[in-house]
């Protein structure tokens, strides 16, 4: 089973994402902000990170840039999942190395479609 790290400061979102992804046969770890997620990556690198943008301590974009700058990391697939839904944010995320981008609100079909586009399913 593939491991997905769900990074979101909202407990509700993490719970919804976990339920959908478990149905799609992923193992789940959770992190509450970018810093927490980085530490999780150092312990156990996930196959994919589902990443919120706006979070306290370290936001999603900072996390992504930090991960992509690390040459000692086995690079994970990163899928943004955020309420930021304008073209400028999307471009910034993709240029920083995000593989896909989900605009909230999301549902199972969107997660499934995006995950299969990046070859996870």
């Amino acid at each position: 089973m593939k491991l997905c790290l769900v990074v979101d400061d909202s407990k509700v979102i993490r719970k919804v994402a976990r339920r959908i992804l478990e149905e799609l046969h992923f193992d789940i770890e959770e992190a509450v902000d970018g810093q927490d997620a980085l530490e999780a990556c150092e312990r156990n690198m996930p196959d994919v990170v589902l990443l919120d943008w706006n979070m306290p301590v370290m936001d999603g974009l900072e996390f992504l840039r930090a991960v992509r700058a690390r040459d000692d990391f086995e690079q994970p697939i990163v899928v943004f999942c955020t309420t930021e839904n304008d073209m400028a944010h999307i471009r910034t995320a993709i240029e920083a190395g995000a593989n896909e981008y989900i605009m909230k609100p999301f549902d199972r079909e969107i997660i499934e479609a995006k995950f299969s586009q990046v070859g996870l399913m």
Partner: peptide, 9 residues
């Protein structure tokens, strides 16, 4: 978001 890769969007 259903089926369209972000690059194509």
């Amino acid at each position: 978001q259903r089926g369209l890769p972000i690059q194509l969007l």
